[in-house]
């Protein structure tokens, strides 16, 4: 793993942000808008009575944590799309850059993105709604770590599909993560799902994180079981997904798709 080459790829993406208004919007505007809308919904629900009051405090926390997952996934998938749109994949993969270094660079890029978006959302929530996500306490560390990994897994899956099927699949860069949202139980507890969906939800790592978040807020308990499940599942899926990416990359090279992707 060559750090210089990972840095090269990172600098290529950071140069983009330096002068791209659209890319800055992605960091500032959409998360801010999300927070405003959900903030008002939260206030409205809180005004409806004490029964709902406990539940509504989850919403802003859930939204901020969901954005960690969403931006982590986008950090990977959009980085690939940027290369595809710029017809730069040949320049990259005809250089000494390895697939592992490429993945590492996009994962690092997603950390930058999550840090920027997450910090802003935490700040906005505090300023506009007096909502302090740090009430979750130390559990926040494994929560964010696991959501980041889940975002990478979905991002790598999305990238491998785009690489395999080309531009017709690029919409997945925005849509794929939402496929997992209903079963991730972001805004509602797992128990509201039908029994068979609860079983599926159980093997989706983010569902454990959002369950865990509610457990901390409701009972003040550190949700050890959920954290262990999320971490274990993420470890298995991440290794599997990286192997899958290598396999897809190899198929694309065999079929000559790497030089045609984006055409």
């Amino acid at each position: 793993m060559n750090v210089g080459r990972i840095g090269a790829l990172l600098s290529r993406h950071l140069y983009l942000y330096k002068r791209s208004f659209a890319r800055l919007l992605e960091i500032f505007y959409w998360p801010f808008l999300d927070l405003i809308v959900w903030g008002f919904i939260t206030i409205y629900l809180a005004q409806q009575g004490n029964q709902l009051h406990g539940a509504v405090t989850f919403f802003l926390g859930a939204l901020i944590l969901w954005d960690v997952l969403f931006r982590a996934q986008q950090g990977i998938a959009l980085s690939f799309l940027e290369e595809m749109w710029a017809r730069n994949l040949m320049n990259l993969f005809a250089s000494p850059l390895t697939v592992g270094e490429y993945l590492m660079a996009t994962m690092t890029m997603s950390i930058f993105k999550v840090t920027a978006v997450g910090s802003l959302m935490i700040l906005f929530a505090l300023v506009f709604y007096s909502y302090d996500i740090f009430v979750i306490g130390l559990s926040l560390v494994p929560f964010i770590f696991n959501l980041l990994i889940s975002g990478w897994i979905i991002g790598v899956l999305t990238t491998s599909i785009i690489m395999r099927f080309g531009q017709q699949a690029e919409v997945l860069a925005w849509g794929m993560v939402f496929l997992f949202q209903p079963l991730s139980c972001v805004f509602y507890p797992m128990e509201v799902l039908p029994a068979f969906l609860q079983k599926i939800s159980w093997i989706i790592p983010p569902s454990h994180i959002f369950e865990g978040m509610r457990s901390v807020l409701l009972h003040g308990e550190i949700p050890t079981v959920h954290v262990i499940w999320a971490t274990g599942l993420n470890a298995v899926y991440l290794v599997g997904m990286i192997l899958w990416f290598y396999h897809t990359f190899s198929i694309c090279k065999e079929r000559g798709m790497l030089v045609r992707v984006g055409e």
Binding site: G4, L9, S11, R12, Y15, N88, M90, L92, S95, L97
Partner: peptide, 19 residues
């Protein structure tokens, strides 16, 4: 082939040099 359009000539060359 092309190179990233949103980068300047020098920035593109810097990225390649690092790679």
């Amino acid at each position: 082939i092309s190179m990233p359009y949103s980068l300047t000539v020098e920035e593109n060359l810097r990225v390649i040099a690092r790679l």
